[in-house]
């Protein structure tokens, strides 16, 4: 029995959660048709049940009620722990998102079993061996998960979300478990409003212009924004850029951001770490602009310009303008 903690967003089940379902299906098949159960929390967008059925989920536990109004790693894990016990699940997994990692770490601590973060593949069920990303993606670690339940999270975009050949029943259960007061000692007291975003704009763009640490600071994005506008595309950035607060998180491309698949991706000042590559590798054509000819993004790209993005990008904008006669 495989139990999955899945997350939702405005559009339905989060993409990284559906990718986790895909890995779970492959694991279930390797195990000779093991059932897949999903746990969801709080308010849900429409159509979730159908989505889960299409992706091969057999049973769904929807957790709401007192203690589940706002996210809490401890409360979420307590509900997962109870459901794990009731269903006798031997594997519990989640997407390798901040919340997926947090909730599973809580569960691992409560059960005192190992947990493997950011798994990219598995080999063999007995022993159960997983491969995960370490050293910022520069290396992989093979790890044995012998204890039951085996806990792991799936590195974002290392699997592809895909509907199942045989849909699941997605048999629905409403749950309202009790939460121990101690599990709500650390709690959210307020959530600020996020600025409105056009969901999917980045994911649907035919051209994405990317910018990373090479932008140099919050004021270093004028050129790339202008280029994106001229090409009718969108801006995508690396995690360094969102961590430093230079641009908002919804623009992030990569394992913990969006997965894009434009006709053309133009990463400027982005080194091409494996976690960024996870989000942009399905671009049809990649044109890298970077000062370093050895940067992984350059060697992996189809085309490259070696140079300072603050010189190259304005020159491209000028050339585009010149040819349009503007």
């Amino acid at each position: 029995m495989i139990l999955l903690y899945l997350e939702t967003d405005e559009a339905g089940i989060a993409e990284t959660s559906l990718e986790t379902v895909a890995l779970a299906r492959s694991l279930a098949e390797a195990g000779g048709g093991i059932a897949i159960r999903a746990v969801l929390f709080g308010g849900l967008p429409e159509g979730v049940a159908g989505q889960l059925a299409a992706h091969g989920v057999d049973e769904v536990f929807h957790v709401t009620g007192a203690g589940f109004e706002a996210f809490s790693g401890a409360a979420w894990a307590s509900a997962l722990q109870a459901l794990r016990e009731r269903t006798g699940s031997v594997v519990v997994a989640a997407g390798g998102s901040p919340r997926g990692n947090e909730v599973l770490a809580h569960l691992a601590a409560r059960l005192d079993v190992p947990m493997a973060a950011n798994v990219v593949s598995f080999a063999g069920l007995a022993p159960f061996v997983v491969t995960r990303q370490v050293v910022g993606g520069a290396a992989l670690e093979e790890m044995r998960l012998d204890q039951r339940p085996a806990l792991f999270t799936v590195a974002g975009h290392s699997w592809t979300a895909r509907a199942a050949v045989t849909p699941g029943k997605a048999e629905w259960h409403e749950e309202a478990p009790e939460v121990a007061p101690g599990d709500l000692a650390a709690r959210i007291v307020s959530v600020g409003q996020r600025e409105a975003v056009r969901p999917g704009a980045l994911k649907r763009a035919r051209v994405v212009v990317g910018a990373g640490r090479g932008a140099g600071g919050p004021d270093g994005f004028d050129g790339v924004v202008e280029l994106a506008e001229l090409l009718g595309g969108a801006l995508g950035v690396s995690r360094v850029v969102t961590s430093l607060g230079w641009r908002p998180h919804h623009e992030q491309v990569g394992q913990t951001g969006s997965r894009i698949s434009p006709e053309l991706y133009i990463p400027c000042g982005i080194s091409g770490a494996i976690q960024h590559w996870a989000g942009c590798s399905s671009s049809k054509t990649i044109l890298a602009i970077n000062t370093d000819p050895e940067a992984p993004m350059v060697t992996k790209a189809d085309y490259a310009v070696i140079g300072d993005m603050h010189e190259v990008v304005p020159a491209i904008v000028e050339e585009l303008r010149r040819r349009s006669g503007a």
């Binding site: 520069a138 992989l140 044995r144 060697t299 189809d302 490259a304 310009v305 190259v312 020159a315």
Partner: peptide
């Protein structure tokens, strides 16, 4: 740690075509 071993991802052959250096590459 339950680690059995570490691995390095295999290097991929590069097929990049460099269009030029700096602003001169714009055309």
């Amino acid at each position: 740690s339950r680690r059995t071993r570490l691995l390095l991802p295999p290097p991929e052959p590069s097929t990049v075509q460099v269009l030029g250096k700096g602003a001169e590459a714009a055309p």
